[in-house]
């Protein structure tokens, strides 16, 4: 008897949750649609300058045109690959440097002020030097993507390594574990949550690095589309690139989130 009542209460609770979810979703959709309608209307009625702010229909028409001649896909592919490369290499390099710092406490003491300076410096300002050093091409754009994320990754992950509870290390030491074993069994696995949150930050950072890199050198890519659109005063092109970037940055973020869920819920 009471069992049925419990189920009823549970059902009510679930209904309430579902209702709340629907409410949130419908508002999210509404804001999305309202934004584009407002943009369209404001542009047509010249509340905003259509030459600068374009309009959804114009961007859409350009989108169709650029899809059909294949150029959008080409630009997207290039920028996407550069970003993914910058993102993965930047994160890996950061983890490797953090590992070296953990290994040698004296080295980390020596390098500490340099890390602080490098972290505070705006990395994109190094762009011109990179281009001269590595040549105007993919290499310097990817290098830019790496540069933007590597220092902050190093700092975050190194501090995560150091925050691992000493007692876990004590347990391993009582079995005569070597430093490599301590790293593999305790330090690395306990820092996985931090690594994932750094990944999330790095998704955004590597887009910044790559787009700025493309601003400076490239003849292809979404960053180039923005600069080109700006130079010929075609803001339809600028806005189209912006929207494509927003969508793909969000997709990458969602992928990282999916990896996170998989790694963190592996046991249940």
């Amino acid at each position: 008897m009471s069992n049925r009542e419990d189920h009823l209460l549970y059902e009510q609770y679930r209904q309430k949750k579902r209702k709340e979810k629907r409410f949130v979703l419908s508002w999210q959709g509404l804001i999305f649609i309202a934004f584009f309608i407002f943009w369209e209307v404001a542009s047509r009625l010249h509340w905003i300058d259509p030459l600068i702010f374009s309009s959804p229909t114009r961007v859409w028409n350009l989108f169709i045109e650029k899809i059909n001649d294949g150029s959008l896909l080409m630009h997207l592919q290039i920028t996407g690959l550069e970003t993914i490369a910058g993102f993965i290499l930047g994160t890996l390099l950061g983890i490797i440097i953090a590992t070296i710092l953990w290994w040698s406490s004296i080295l980390s003491k020596i390098l500490d002020p340099y890390l602080v300076v490098l972290n505070a410096m705006p990395k994109v300002a190094l762009g011109p030097i990179l281009i001269v050093a590595l040549g105007p091409g993919y290499t310097s754009i990817i290098a830019m993507g790496i540069l933007v994320s590597v220092i902050i990754t190093t700092i975050h992950i190194y501090s995560a390594f150091r925050e691992v509870d000493e007692n876990y290390i004590k347990v391993l030491q009582s079995f005569q574990a070597t430093r490599t074993q301590i790293f593999k069994e305790a330090i690395l696995p306990s820092s996985i949550p931090t690594m994932i949150s750094t990944l999330k930050v790095n998704v955004g950072l590597s887009w910044v690095g790559v787009i700025v890199g493309e601003f400076l050198v490239s003849e292809r890519g979404l960053g180039y589309m923005i600069v080109y659109g700006f130079q010929v005063f075609d803001f339809n092109l600028v806005l189209l690139s912006l929207i494509v970037i927003a969508i793909f940055a969000a997709v990458m973020y969602k992928i990282v989130e999916a990896i996170e869920n998989k790694l963190i819920n592996h046991k249940s």
Binding site: D165, Y168, K170, V171, L172, Q176, E185
Partner: peptide, 27 residues
């Protein structure tokens, strides 16, 4: 080895119980 039991268990949360018990031989 000399066995050492601490104030808290300090079991590794990402290892199951069997793996935790076998951490010494594993090392």
């Amino acid at each position: 080895s000399i066995g050492y039991m601490l104030q808290q268990d300090y079991l590794f949360p990402w290892k199951n119980i069997m793996e935790n018990v076998l951490i010494g031989p594993h090392i």
